[in-house]
Write a protein that binds this DNA or RNA. Structure first.
Lengths: 125, 125
DNA sequence: AGAATATATTCAATTTTATGAATATAAAGG
DNA sequence: CCTTTATATTCATAAAATTGAATATATTCT
């Protein structure tokens, strides 16, 4: 029973153990986003983003909301960004890496996002 | 450069994404321990424990100290237990699991440890 | 030096994960 | 109804992680 608890914890960390998934979580920390938006910001194929989103959702880290053709994803819990930041601080101390210590999630330029949802919003202000 | 930062974070989480490694870290949170002690408490083969320790050390999570035949491992940083606890809380909230919310690392009965180091200490108080 | 013992490493086999490519699904609009 | 379009899924392959077995290393003791 203790063993299975550790297995769940390990699964949780596994879901976080991927650079693209971490990037997605950091973006979602700024608010919900649709698949095409994430694909545009990260410059990755839509199908690939969908795969990672499915995994994050399976892990319970994100939820989704449908609106017409779009599917908007958001963090399942508001504590997640704090956990990620704590982990980064911990890693920074462990490795003595100042860059990591002062790491802040990159600020993507939303105004140049080429995703359909963004483009539609821009033309209909 | 941001990409490589995310890769390092992912590697860090990967090191944590394993039930046995998490168990080891929880034990080390209570103080340093030698390989035979860990093997005895967790009832796993010595070679297997050594493998996991090597991985944790490579990830920078633990350090080691040699003393005679024994090698004592300890946490590389005092914040690690807190991070693990935060992660558990986060997972507990996400999954709504009360058991996990109130999870405390199991208390192993050190007095019945059959490892040579412990046995030697018991006979030489 | 040789034996005993705690720990580390290497190797191989299995399983899991990552990822690209292709395709399916579902909603909206004409 | 048919087309378009955003998203999801399936499949195949490559890469990586897991783990058992065997063996190597290093330290202590006689």
């Amino acid at each position: 029973m203790v063993r299975s608890t550790y297995e769940r914890q390990a699964q949780f960390f596994s879901a976080l153990a991927h650079p693209v998934r971490l990037s997605i979580l950091d973006i979602l920390a700024g608010g919900e986003a649709c698949v095409c938006h994430l694909a545009s910001l990260l410059q990755l194929r839509q199908a690939y983003i969908s795969q990672q989103l499915a995994l994050l959702k399976e892990a319970g880290l994100i939820t989704d909301r449908k609106e017409g053709l779009y599917v908007y994803y958001s963090l399942a819990n508001a504590d997640i960004p704090r956990l990620l930041q704590e982990a980064r601080s911990c890693l920074a101390r462990i490795s003595g890496d100042e860059v990591l210590q002062n790491f802040v999630p990159p600020k993507y330029d939303e105004s140049t996002c080429t995703c359909p949802a963004c483009c539609a919003t821009r033309s209909n202000p």
